[in-house]
Write a protein that binds this DNA or RNA. Structure first.
Ligand SMILES: [Zn+2]
Ligand SMILES: [Zn+2]
Ligand SMILES: [Zn+2]
Ligand SMILES: [Zn+2]
Lengths: 142, 142
DNA sequence: ATTGACCTATGTCTAAGACATAGGTGTAGC
DNA sequence: GCTACACCTATGTCTTAGACATAGGTCAAT
């Protein structure tokens, strides 16, 4: 199979499969005539694993580590448990950041509904953004 | 003022200020002797604006656009309203994606609590990841 | 003048692909 | 066989918003 077929079969783009191949997460045979990659059943199996792991928040580097361990006949499970715990924490942080951001955006939009447009003068760029309560005072405005 | 002072005053890193300077979002004078940048009061004011806009989810490119309009003596307000609406939609999408990801991760961790570690064989890398219900069936496993 | 702590500008790197492009494939028509 | 032409491929470059590394500059104390 060539890249597009394998990509479609797993619901990812051909570019994604090419990327995984580039970083040697997949190692298909290369046709020496045109450099086209030929993906075997085993390659598809591995890609399936990568897609599943990605969907659980593992980075491609995490996945490389995991696969390396497995190929070394060691159980990757402890590593997997450790990593996902860390990734979940990161996700939680991002989540909180995103909630805060969304709240600020919504508040700004709400506040600006009753604010007229204004042409900037020398000491202001957009009064809406500048007046939005964030408290970014420079504390040295004399 | 030099980069560090201005950065501290606004609660960002010196690298951030340098980055904004590099992309000409800030345009401090340069000491021709040592290339050190000298930030004026006006530069600090502009940085204050950039920081405020960033905290509302505007990209640096958005901010460039907004500033350009203001410097052209046009009101940037309609642009600002348009952009933040779009950015809020994106944030909302990210938010939903993140909720789904977090749910998958938590579910996986919960499921794996009762799963023993296992050493991989030729047809498996990590059974925990592989067996986690995501339904990534290749549909051609004959 | 010399040290040494701190600071600076510049270049490079990051994640995970998307995008652009030059060239290859394969089928249809002649 | 040859030519179109639609589609596919590998490769190189680009993306975000800074972080990091490093060679060199500053400045106060010696
Ligand atoms: Zn199989
Ligand atoms: Zn405005
Ligand atoms: Zn001012
Ligand atoms: Zn496992």
């Amino acid at each position: 199979m060539r890249v597009k077929e394998v990509a479609e079969r797993l619901g990812v783009t051909a570019d994604t499969v090419r990327f995984y191949t580039r970083i040697r997460l997949l190692n298909p045979n290369t046709n020496p005539h045109n450099q086209y990659k030929e993906y075997s059943h085993a390659d598809v199996e591995r890609l399936k694993f990568v897609v599943a792991a990605r969907s659980l928040g593992f980075t491609v580097e995490d996945i490389s580590t995991i696969i390396a361990k497995a190929e070394d006949h060691q159980s990757p499970c402890p590593t997997v448990r450790q990593i996902i715990e860390k990734r979940l924490e990161e996700t939680e942080r991002q989540f909180q950041d995103l909630i805060a951001l969304r709240a600020r955006m919504s508040a700004a939009i709400a506040q600006w509904e009753d604010t007229p447009d204004r042409v900037p003068n020398g000491h202001m760029i957009c009064h809406m953004i500048e007046s939005f309560a964030g408290g970014f005072s420079d504390d040295t405005e004399k």
